[in-house]
Amino acid sequence: MASSCSALLQGDPAAFAAALRTLINNPQFSDVTFLVGRGQQKVFAHRCLLSSRCQTFHAMLSQPQEMQAPLILSHVQPEVFLAVIEYLYTNSVTLNSFSALEVLTSSMEYGLDDLRKLCVEFIKDTLSMEQVCEALQAAVAYGQMELQLHCLAFIESCIREVVHTRGFLELSEAAMLTVLQSDCLAIDEVELIHAVREWAHVGSAVLSSPVSDVAKAVVSELRLALLSPSELTVLEEENRKDQMIPMERVAEAWKTHALWKGRGMRSCLCRCRRGTLFREHHRHLDPQHK
């Protein structure tokens, strides 16, 4: 008797995906309706497909309810939700520079790690001056270290242009700290302090809080000791207007100048950044901390 054998043979995956694509947001044969976004746009889908592809949808659609009752998703934009649906149906996704960050957020909300990876790669490949701060903010907020490092490297190289973007002025406190802790920023400290002051004033207007409160956590990363005595004097004059920098921080910078002779300045806040312009007193910096 001849022995039996079996094999798993693959058909054309493109044809299969194309066929499933015709079901996306197609009311014919659909058995679940979502009302998406503030305008409650209808999106049609299929329970068995969503449940098999995503544990979050499996839990959502397993709850006892009327089969025809729409599910309301007011927190997500229709374009973003349709991108998630597209991925679940076809294992591919259409992204653009306006929706990619929101699709990334949804991918983590729904536990779709492969979609998350696709979003991260797209964002990295299409990063622009206008969007890099928004991407950094999302990366910091959602713990996406790979994307965070990529965005930071982009910012470090062109920080003088980035500080003039709207995205920089809208950075969260955590994202701003990430930027200011870098030694590789290609900008002088005077220009950087001015940019942080603008950021703090915008935050003050939005939050209706004093500039000093908005900037409280981030000013500790400004390297005041890199400024010359004349620049520190100008800084003090500016600071009287908004009190962004605590007076003790300015006093510490003056103290550092007074202690030059006979010792190196060891604080990391005396360490020059990549774009720091040379001042005469920088000769006194501890070589290990330059």
Rank of each mutant, 00 (worst) to 15 (best):
M1G: 09
S3Q: 08
S6A: 08
A7G: 04
A14S: 13
A18E: 10
A19L: 05
T22D: 06
N26A: 08
P27R: 03
Q28N: 09
V32A: 04
F34N: 08
F34Q: 01
L35K: 06
V36W: 11
G37S: 02
F44G: 00
H46T: 05
R53L: 07
C54Y: 11
A59T: 09
M60I: 05
Q65C: 11
E66Y: 05
M67T: 09
P70G: 14
P70K: 11
I72H: 10
P78W: 02
E79P: 00
L82Q: 10
L82C: 06
V84K: 00
I85K: 00
Y87R: 04
L88E: 05
Y89M: 06
S92M: 01
F98W: 04
S99D: 05
V103N: 03
L104G: 03
M108V: 06
L112Y: 05
L112W: 05
D114C: 14
L115M: 08
L115V: 07
R116I: 06
K117V: 10
L118C: 07
L127E: 04
V132G: 03
V132M: 04
C133K: 04
E134P: 01
A135M: 05
G143I: 05
L147G: 05
C151D: 00
A153K: 07
I155A: 08
V163E: 00
H164D: 15
E173Y: 01
M176P: 08
T178Y: 08
T178S: 12
L180H: 11
I187T: 02
I193R: 15
A200L: 07
H201G: 02
V202N: 03
G203L: 10
S204W: 04
A205H: 07
A205V: 13
S212C: 13
A215Y: 10
V218N: 07
E221F: 14
R223M: 14
L227N: 10
P229R: 00
P229A: 00
E231L: 12
L232K: 02
T233D: 15
L235V: 11
E238V: 15
D242G: 06
Q243F: 13
M244W: 05
P246G: 08
M247E: 15
A251H: 12
E252Q: 12
A253E: 09
A253L: 03
K255G: 12
R263W: 09
G264S: 13
M265F: 03
L269N: 15
C272N: 14
C272M: 15
T276K: 02
R279L: 10
H281M: 13
H282K: 10
H289I: 12
H289L: 08
